[in-house]
Design a binder for these strands. Structure first.
Lengths: 358, 358
DNA sequence: TTGAAAGCGCTAACAT
DNA sequence: ATGTTAGCGCTTTCAA
């Protein structure tokens, strides 16, 4: 018996149980309700005597009280937390998106947690998304955005916004940059420089149903310049620097008259393309011109610096967060659609054609 | 009254309240207790008739039941969630760390949420970290690791592991790669190539108290090669590619005999260094040699490819997660310390000195 | 083998 | 202006 008690005591002294609002109430000599009202500043609901207020504040401070997240979430049926699902964080593209989303969320009193879910992995792997552990999710990456899990989460009451995709579910908001316009600007620029054989190195070949993907802009610029679309000049490769290098090899080995330029899916791939061109002894832009997409910092440090389509990453992240939070708070069951403009950042990787194609 | 009832009905049909275990129990015609026991597979505690089991499973499936995270966390006093605090996600260095940590965590039944907290921002900004919203945190980044908030979170019962730092609090575990060894390997390699004036471009100048930082290894290699440590050759700059470029300028403008090589804090900075050397018309490695740190993918695609200290990023993330989870589950109040080995990846950015320094 | 009841920490009706 | 009470959804004694 004594043994038992001692054990309990020891355990207790080790187990640093966090102070609860009841502890604060006890110390301040008031009720738990009062503590809640003071700490949540519900001035309109009940006016608190400033003396009482001070007692509570002091007690809370003294105890180092912080409200228990689980208890509050359970009671309020909301967590004030949004999750940002990314396919990977190894592309710095997402850095600005995340920071801006986080800033916008914070302004609205929400925290943001980033959950990387690689393509092909199931959403279910993340227990976090289940059971209303957050109020809404922003989803990036084609595979994640088209996952059927998304609809299930929606049906369960989670607000959902997707990045760079459209969802068949009208309740799912969509925020994107104008990929088609970017593809057009890049290709139009190359055509204007005199290139007639312009390739496209891309991560995947699933044109968006709405004709708003990069390749749609690429084709439009081609047509506008009186150039034929040649499927042999469209190369699908893995989304990585190594993938870009491999893609360039395949492009240069394609049938027909060789390409003298390429519009590349993103800057990460473009870095690989530039490296491989160098290895192959091709001068950029004299022998071959390259335009990337994203506007990453690395583009200013490649050899030569990379012409790219600058994507408004910060605006994208902020808008996504704002849109999602609006959906959460209004409970709206019809989503918003936003498309953001892009601009071409011209650098050294595509100069004027010295000699027209033979 | 009728009005009231209709309203309630309407509200109900709109509000897609997630099914609870009570709903499952009702549908299956059993008690909530039974549902819990079946779904949590507590076979040892109570044997369930397989017929009952099937009824419950079927009801849960039919309703699409998922346990409510908040309720479970509140009851169990644990969330099965760990947070990974990063200063930024714009350095791909963290990508492998995060993926490995996530994988290890999942194996133990934990989810991982990444919370970017930029240097200088307060931990408190993230409401997520407060109120036991997660069971433990892995913290990266000097500023975050040395934040006094960490001790408070510790005191509140959160398990804490820091990456690449040591904490004065013995309860905080530490997992790092051998930075000093990396600094030594890099500098030793350059000295072996005949360089006598080897600079160091770094993000900050706060040598770890335990003498285990990059610069400690740098100094050791210098001494071993019979070279003097010249503070003029150590340049502190911002942690970015642009910072690397600026750092190189400052290094080349330093007093005394000019440096012919540099050991650079990380690959991100090194990319900027290489770009600026190119702009200044310096040939690499003939005129100037560069060694980076981290072993990022980009290093294989720079011009020339970057010699770097390859850091075991995956092992770091995995070990951190494992260590943290061990701390969570044992409730240990004394942390572990781990240090992982590095290796030099020799590529083109430092060849043999053609002409010895005059 | 199963069920009833209590309680995790919080907020919000509804008293007083 | 403040306190009492109930209940969010879950797991877990304890009882049957």
């Amino acid at each position: 018996m004594l043994q038992r008690d001692m054990t309990d005591l020891t355990t207790q002294s080790e187990t640093k149980r966090a102070p609860t609002s009841a502890d604060v109430a006890r110390l301040a000599g008031v009720s738990q309700t009062t503590v809640s009202q003071v700490l949540n500043g519900k001035a309109g609901v009940a006016r608190i005597a400033s003396e009482t207020r001070d007692k509570v504040l002091e007690a809370a401070r003294q105890l180092g009280y912080t409200p228990n997240h689980a208890a509050r979430s359970l009671r309020e049926r909301r967590t004030k937390l949004i999750a940002l699902i990314l396919p990977t964080i190894d592309n710095p593209y997402f850095s600005d998106v995340v920071n801006a989303a986080q800033e916008a969320a914070r302004e609205a009193g929400y925290a943001v947690a980033v959950i990387p879910i690689r393509a092909g992995e199931e959403f279910r792997v993340s227990t976090f998304l289940q059971g209303a552990a957050c109020d809404g999710i922003i989803v990036a990456g084609h595979d994640n955005c088209s996952s059927p899990e998304l609809q299930i989460l929606r049906a369960r009451g989670l607000a959902v916004a997707v990045l760079q995709e459209r969802s068949p579910d009208p309740a799912i908001s969509s925020v994107s940059v104008d990929l088609a316009e970017g593809g057009y600007l890049a290709t139009h620029h190359l055509a204007g420089l005199g290139h007639r054989r312009i390739g496209h190195i891309t991560e995947r070949l699933r044109p968006a149903a709405d004709g708003r993907s990069r390749i749609d802009g690429y084709r439009r610029a081609l047509a506008e310049a009186g150039l034929f679309f040649d499927p042999a000049l469209v190369v699908v490769t893995e989304n990585s620097m190594a993938g870009g290098a491999a893609g360039l090899d395949r492009l240069l080995e394609a049938d027909g008259e060789p390409a003298t330029a390429a519009f590349v899916y993103n800057d990460q791939l473009a870095v690989g393309v530039l490296a491989r061109l160098r290895e192959r002894g091709q001068r950029v832009p004299e022998d071959f011109a390259v335009v990337g997409f994203d506007g990453l910092a690395i583009g200013a440090f490649t050899a030569p610096p990379l012409t790219t389509v600058d994507s408004p990453r910060g605006a994208l992240g902020r808008l996504a967060a704002e849109t999602l939070i609006r959906a959460i708070e209004t409970g709206a069951d019809v989503g918003e659609t936003h498309r953001l403009p892009v601009r071409l950042e011209v650098r050294g990787s595509c100069g004027a054609r010295e000699r027209p194609a033979p």
